[in-house]
Amino acid sequence: MFVWGSLLYFRIYTPPANAMNIYVVGKQWMWKVEHPGGQHEINALHVPTGRPIQLTIISQDVFHSFSIPAFRVKREAIPGRFTSVWFQATMPGTYHLFCTQYCGTNHSQMIGDVVVMTPDDYKKWLRESTSGESLAQDGERLFASLSCNACHNTRPDARGPNLANVYNSQLTLTSGLAITADDAFLREAILNPSQHITQGYAPIMPTYQGQISEEGVIALVEYIKNLNSDYRIQQTLNTTDIVPENEGKAAPTTPAPAGQKEVKP
């Protein structure tokens, strides 16, 4: 029983590599969901069937807990750090979404619906509810407006490291620590920069704690994650990337509408 339970536990909390990542921010007393395509939802989560969905969860204030009983999925939303969980929906329908960690007055109002759709419906939904900008594009706008690019650029005399391809790369910090630049690292480096200085750079970056919301941080992280070679290309990222055409078993794939398709890197 112990072994079985533990295997299950490891499986639920270790997302597969090809999972689609959706960000969830808990806040007194609502769930804010950020799709990579820039769709925002409150107290609702739309997902397609037949695809592993990874949720990256964080809280903006106190402990919350993101729970979808029907999928046997639950993960605490902790202020100040990312947690993640994954699932794969099989049946279209509407399911309950609860906050299960007591979080204050309207704890019991912090509920919503998980809407599971067929991949086709999902694509339609994505198209209809897009805000016109992907999450990464939001991030890019922030990146520019906070003047991050004043230091983090490709010029040889740049004061900050170039962030292209930084995601998932091995970094050596000034403390000598070798670390993988994952979501959590990127987030921390924005909020508490001085502990996360890459070797060879001066600790001059100001903290952005309290200046950007959790959604802003998420947008920035998403932007940095998608920086592949240089900035320009990234603008071409768009919503159609979210549901790649080469899904394993989705046979009757309709070609994505032409309008959504832009130049891919």
């Binding site: 909020l191 508490n192 920069p193 001085s194 502990q195 600790p203 001059i204 970056m205 100001p206 903290t207 704690q209």
Partner: peptide
Amino acid sequence: PLAPDMAA
């Protein structure tokens, strides 16, 4: 000097 976030 400490970086501002560290000084805090």
